[in-house]
Design a protein around this nucleic acid. Structure first.
Length: 326
DNA sequence: TTCCATGATTATGA
DNA sequence: TCATAATCATGGAA
C-alpha cells in the first residue's frame, strides 16, 4: 500500500510537472535508481516494485529507447549457437572413461577382470584378490564421478532456469529476443560442460594412477611351481640344439605349467641368455635333465617300442653353441 | 641383512 | 616382430 501511494504520488507528480523540460530526465533518473536498488528489497517488495515499473507510464518510452540504443550499438547476438566440433581431447577422455567402465553402463565383475587379465597378461586364478581391490577402487572412482556429474548437471539446470526466468522477466522492461535467451543458455551450458571436462580429466588421471599402481603390483614376482620349472627345463635341455619353441609348443607348455604363453617366452628368453652366459654353471643341471629324458625314453621304448615325444629332437647339450660362446 | 635366483621389463638390433 | 642383453625388483635361503 505504501508503494501504491508512492507510485500514485509519482504519477500525480509526473502529470502535474509534465511541462517542465528537466522533468522527464529526472523521472528516468529516478526510474533507474529504483532499478538499481531493486536487489536490496525483499521478494514481495521487489514484486510490487516490478509491477509498479511495468505499469509506469514511461515504461513504453524507456523500452523503445532501449530498443533504439540496442539497434544503434548493434548489441545483437554475436556468434550464437555456432556448433563447435567435438573436442578430440574430450572425445579421448570419453572413450577412456567408457573403456574403463567409469562412464556408461556398469561393467560386470567378469568383464573388469577379463580386461585386467588382458592388460596384464596374467592368469586370473591367483590375482582375483588384487582384481577385487582394483574393482573396488574403480567403483569408488565411478561413484564419485557420477555424483559429481549429477551435481554439475543439477546445478547447470538450476542456473539455466534462473537465468531464463530472469531474462524473461527482464524482457518486459528491456528488449531481449528469445534467440538471445537461447544464446545465453548455450553459453551457460558450454561453461558447465567445460567444468565437466575438468571432472573427466581428473577422473581419467585417477584411473591411470590406479591402473599404474595395479600394473606395478604385477611385478610382485611369484616363482613358478617346481613342476612347471621341471617341465620347462626338460624341454629346454632336450632341445638345446634349438631351444626356440614354436608358438604352438609355447601354448602347450603354458597349459602344462598353468602359466601364460608370454611367461613361457620370458622363461625361455631368460634361460637361453643365462645358460649361454654360464654354461659351466648349468652343466650339472643339463646332465641331470639329459639323464632324466633318456630314462623316460628308454622306459617308453621298452614299453611300446615307440620313439620319444615328437618335440624331443634328441638332447645334445653340446649342440647349443650360441654366438660362438663355446 | 645380504646375496643369489628368477620372473618381468625395456632398449636395441636384425 | 622376435631374440638378445641389460636391468629391475622380488623371493627366499643362509
Amino acid at each position: 500500500s505504501d508503494r501504491q501511494t508512492r507510485s500514485e504520488g509519482e504519477r500525480k507528480k509526473g502529470v502535474s510537472d509534465q511541462h517542465t523540460p528537466e522533468q522527464p530526465q529526472r523521472d528516468i533518473g529516478e526510474l533507474l535508481q529504483q532499478i538499481m536498488v531493486i536487489t536490496e528489497d525483499s521478494l514481495d517488495e521487489a514484486q510490487a516494485r516490478k509491477h509498479a515499473l511495468n505499469c509506469h507510464k514511461l515504461k513504453p518510452a524507456l523500452f523503445s529507447i532501449l530498443c533504439e540504443i540496442k539497434d544503434k550499438t548493434a548489441l545483437s547476438i554475436r556468434g550464437v549457437a555456432e556448433e563447435e566440433p567435438p573436442d578430440p581431447q574430450e572425445l579421448r577422455l570419453d572413450n577412456m572413461l567408457l573403456a574403463e567402465g567409469v562412464a556408461g553402463p556398469q561393467k560386470s565383475r567378469a568383464a573388469t577382470a577379463a580386461a585386467l587379465a588382458a592388460a596384464t597378461g596374467g592368469s586370473s586364478s591367483d590375482e582375483s584378490s588384487e582384481h577385487a581391490d582394483y574393482r573396488e577402487k574403480l567403483a569408488q572412482i565411478r561413484m564419485i564421478y557420477h555424483t559429481e556429474l549429477d551435481k554439475y548437471e543439477q546445478a547447470c539446470n538450476e542456473f539455466t532456469g534462473h537465468v531464463m526466468n530472469l531474462l524473461r522477466e527482464q524482457s518486459r522492461t528491456r528488449p531481449i529476443s528469445p534467440k538471445e535467451i537461447e544464446c545465453m543458455v548455450s553459453i551457460i551450458h558450454r561453461k558447465f560442460s567445460a567444468i565437466q571436462g575438468q571432472l573427466k580429466q581428473s577422473t581419467c588421471e585417477a584411473v591411470m594412477i590406479l591402473r599404474s599402481r595395479f600394473l606395478d603390483a604385477r611385478r610382485k614376482r611369484r616363482n613358478f611351481s617346481k613342476q612347471a620349472t621341471e617341465i620347462l627345463n626338460e624341454y629346454f635341455y632336450s632341445h638345446l640344439a634349438n631351444p626356440y619353441p614354436s608358438e604352438e609348443t609355447k601354448e602347450e607348455l603354458a597349459k602344462k605349467c598353468s602359466i601364460t604363453a608370454a611367461q613361457v617366452s620370458n622363461w625361455f628368453g631368460n634361460k637361453r641368455i643365462r645358460y649361454k652366459k654360464n654354461i659351466a654353471k648349468f652343466q650339472e643341471e643339463a646332465n641331470m635333465y639329459a639323464m632324466k629324458t633318456a630314462m623316460d625314453a628308454t622306459s617308453l621304448t621298452s614299453q611300446a617300442s615307440s620313439p620319444a615325444t615328437p618335440n624331443s629332437g634328441g638332447y645334445s647339450a653340446s649342440c647349443y653353441t650360441p654366438g660362438g660362446m663355446m
